[in-house]
Design a protein around this nucleic acid. Structure first.
Lengths: 122, 122
DNA sequence: CAGAATCCTCAAAGATACTG
DNA sequence: CAGTATCTTTGAGGATTCTG
């Protein structure tokens, strides 16, 4: 279960955590392409456990990034969809991902510098 | 100790985690204002433990967001400074934080919707 | 001063089983 | 189908002590 934010702690942090938490971004990415059902999302995100997916969806819903609607057939169908709010965040996320792509080499170089270049020192 | 990225796992995720990890953003924010020393950073971030600060700085350094330089006086002084790479990320972070500010009410409304409005339902 | 090393705890992640 | 419930495991974070 998602936990109620205590006194609505820093919204900034909440948003940033939303972005980072292991599967949130991938799920959000899936839903940008259109509405999807629970098991479809599960199949689309290889390796996610049903518990993790549930938690992820609950939190995204709790914070308004996606919507959840139940279709009362038998057996039931549950459809998840990105919200207007969720979509408005998309370009900013994209900007960060682009930044990561563009600076990939710089980051990797920094990592090699930090850890030492194995092929020379050993 | 920061852990070596296994096969340089998704850079995107690394960057995003960098942004979220409890203190990274605050430390980065401090350093945007100018170089600082270890204990100065500690005092500036009230509540951070020395271990957490060390880990945070190591990771930021390992990924090239900040630089660390030792001044060999006695006792030694260690100065942390934001790198060029770090600065280039700043505007994107700011964009996300601005987004959070601008959509604050929408998120809070979504939260109330999700958890139920206590003053009406109970 | 700027950490490293150690011990400890507790909450989150994973696996498994069950259900309306 | 779309979850909930329960148990176990793991590892990140805190407190404390020690040091070049």
């Amino acid at each position: 279960m998602a936990t109620m934010p205590p006194e609505s702690l820093e919204l900034n942090r909440l948003v940033l955590e939303e972005i980072t938490t292991k599967w949130s971004l991938l799920v959000l990415g899936c839903l940008c392409g259109g509405p999807m059902r629970f098991n479809a999302l599960r199949r689309a995100n290889d390796g996610i456990t049903q518990k993790a997916l549930t938690q992820c969806l609950r939190r995204l819903e709790a914070n308004g990034f996606i919507t959840r609607s139940v279709v009362s057939t038998a057996p039931v169908a549950v459809v998840y969809e990105i919200s207007h709010l969720g979509r408005s965040l998309e370009p900013h996320l994209q900007a960060i991902l682009n930044w990561a792509d563009q600076h990939r080499d710089e980051v990797l170089a920094a990592q090699r510098r930090f850890w030492g270049t194995p092929e020379l020192s050993r």
